[in-house]
Write a protein that binds this DNA or RNA. Structure first.
Lengths: 248, 248
DNA sequence: CGTAAGTTTGATGTAGGTCAACGGCCGTGG
DNA sequence: CCACGGCCGTTGACCTACATCAAACTTACG
């Protein structure tokens, strides 16, 4: 399974038909100004694994850090288990998004990541990525931007948790999903949420009942059409207003 | 002020008497297995600025990203200003800690950072750091660990905000400060908080009244001795218990 | 068609927010 | 020296957004 990262860039034996060259998401996880030869080198080090079953673990908290991962299809959640055995979700990841950075600091993952649905992810061995970034400064710079972006989104989320009401939190989550669907060139108004109410409420620091009630209210006000995990945004303008303090 | 980062490692003209070789905090921000020559190279690129006044700005949200910063003495807070003009603090930084990573992704700072008290910080121009890390892999690896550590602490904090009660939040904050004082080889029990109640409450997603009341309660229970910004930890064990869900 | 898991809805409780008053500390100015 | 006002923190009375508890309903699957 381990392909040597030689300096050659022959397409190499196709352990898998999947590769970055043809990946619809590569413009998201790799928006690089690198040429085809360089893309081959990158592609060689990435392991395109078989599809993951729903709930299947990608990595576990406390195990040795080896790789970062990009979502290819489906979706992933990452979470802590507190000492008192309470799960706290720290992020949802959609196609084109990268996760696993938390493992670098201590050489072991600090969170556990599992697939929310049938998903496929690209495994990027970190040592190989480091080597490659030595010769390709473009890659190195891009990696730094990706990791900085993770910090930014975490801090945005801190602001959300610290200062927002239940309605503001939920509206922000829906809008975030909408934006990320748009980045995937998918409909930004007709969403299918890959996570349960329990997971939404855990992530937002609320209870399932509150999440359900807020969804109900947004539905009744014709801002969303909500049916279980199907959410349609009917009035994006008003939804955005709800995320501001002034917006009721 | 701009020192050329030559490959020579003469001690160079002392634009300032301060340097990494003699910094008490360098073991925190630079716990590197690098030799003296390499340390010179690193030291050459760092700008040791004059002391900052309380409330003085280090960088502002939206301005071009140039450098990351290490706290040398004093303390720093970083914060967003939401569109609705509400401030949200995202972090407090103590001596030996590094901030400013949020600027990398978009080439401009996403937060504003100001000194909480009279402080001094070391400015580390990011382009120079990138150059240096090309030749010193040890530096590169360390930078990645530092930035990953920022992600970890942000995610720990997300778990805190999402799942904890007012008392758990405040107890965790005090213990975090205690640990970080210990890392500075300072008393972990007698703390002086560099931020106001307003700033604590903003950071923790509470109100000043609640923060005050919880402090009052911890004081009454002989867990803390609280007098304005002076906090003494009287019973660390019980304080730690309070941070768990089971611990009432 | 029975059981279980997820979601919704209603009734009630409470942690923490809001509003208001007060007290200590400090700098300025008479 | 004291009087003053502004800022910060504390304390009390009250209120509300959300949690908790409880029950029904919906869907998936053996």
């Amino acid at each position: 399974m381990d392909t040597n990262s030689t300096t050659q860039h022959t397409p190499s034996q196709p352990t898998n038909l999947i590769n970055c060259q043809t990946c619809r998401m590569s413009n998201l996880c790799l928006p690089l100004a690198i040429d085809a030869q360089e893309l081959y080198k990158l592609d060689e080090l990435i392991r395109h694994s078989n599809p993951l079953q729903p709930r299947e673990t990608i990595f576990s908290s406390g195990t040795p850090f080896t790789s970062i991962y990009a979502v290819r299809s489906g979706s992933v959640k990452s979470f802590f288990i507190d000492p008192d055995n309470h799960e706290q979700i720290t992020g949802f990841y959609l196609p084109g998004e990268i996760f696993g950075w938390d493992g670098i600091a201590e050489d072991q993952y600090q969170t556990t990541a599992i697939a929310l649905e049938t998903s496929s992810v690209c495994e990027i061995p970190y040592d190989k990525l480091e080597q490659l970034s030595d010769t390709l400064p473009e890659i190195k710079r891009h990696v730094m931007k990706l990791i900085s972006r993770e910090i930014n989104s975490d801090q945005q989320f801190i602001a959300l948790l610290a200062g927002f009401s239940a309605q503001q939190k939920l509206a922000s989550l829906i809008l975030s999903f909408s934006d990320r669907m748009a980045r995937q060139k998918r409909s930004p108004t007709r969403l299918w949420l890959p996570m349960s109410r329990i997971e939404i409420s855990n992530y937002l620091g609320l209870t399932i009942e509150t999440v359900s009630r807020v969804f109900g209210r947004l539905h009744k006000n014709n801002i969303l059409k909500v049916n279980k995990r199907e959410v349609e945004i009917l009035d994006k303008k008003r939804l955005e207003n709800l995320t501001t303090t002034s917006g009721n």
